[in-house]
Design a binder for these strands. Sequence first.
DNA 1: GCTTGACTTAGAGTTAACTTTAAGGAATAT
DNA 2: ATATTCCTTAAAGTTAACTCTAAGTCAAGC
Lengths: 129, 129
Amino acid sequence: MKTYSISEAAAHFNMTPHTLRYYDKEGLLPSIERTPSGKRVFKTSDMEALRIIECLKASGMPIKEIKHFIEWCSEGDSTLQRRYDMFLERKASVEAQMEELRKTMEVIDHKCHYYKTALEKSMEVVHQS
Amino acid sequence: MKTYSISEAAAHFNMTPHTLRYYDKEGLLPSIERTPSGKRVFKTSDMEALRIIECLKASGMPIKEIKHFIEWCSEGDSTLQRRYDMFLERKASVEAQMEELRKTMEVIDHKCHYYKTALEKSMEVVHQS
DNA sequence: GCTTGACTTAGAGTTAACTTTAAGGAATAT
DNA sequence: ATATTCCTTAAAGTTAACTCTAAGTCAAGC
């Protein structure tokens, strides 16, 4: 099975090795293994965990809450419902963020139109004179 | 013309008076007037400015950059092009954020489906036994 | 007259997610 | 042999946008 060194894993997710050690320290990578000499070995399952961590981060979830999710994963099937509920909440949160961005975009579009028109008007004046 | 006290303006934008004073201190409300006794009076134009400030904030713009925009507004028509360019940049930024949320949503939807199926499977087992 | 809300300066505290610094030691690649 | 990459602890620094505290003055409405 393909494995990754800390800097390979970091490059893959556009992070620094330092950040990955920080995540490990914060308990986000509990199942990571080490070489006999103590180096972290990122397995496919760790890379997948990182992918989900990135996704949860992108959804606006703080690291401490992501940690809870990671713990639930380690606890097995008894936490399936909790994890499902969490993703449903994330879904709702992302939908709300999208809705806010949509409203923000409306205002921006109005302003773009306003300034475009204002600039065209000032161009006309230049051409007339 | 309708005017607002600091707490009325704050309530309107779901902020605290403290935050509005902070914005004023940071130079985001340069055209605000005062009563003879020194109280801030929020005119319609200040409320509109706050609406745009909120929009720029929601688009991810830091307060220091919003301040630049406010300054450009005070400088008149010579900054029209700069302001237009800024809103075009904001538009691009918000589009990028929406795209990232869309990708995040895809992963979340996959996970929702995965957990839903897993839960249904574990329910079946319960019913069989 | 009293309560409520507004004002001031000036600086300290908060939170999140890193990021950096220091100061080494060990192992792997060429 | 040397350069690179990895490891460690432990703590301090960074940034943004507030948020709060102190300590007091001032004014408007009932």
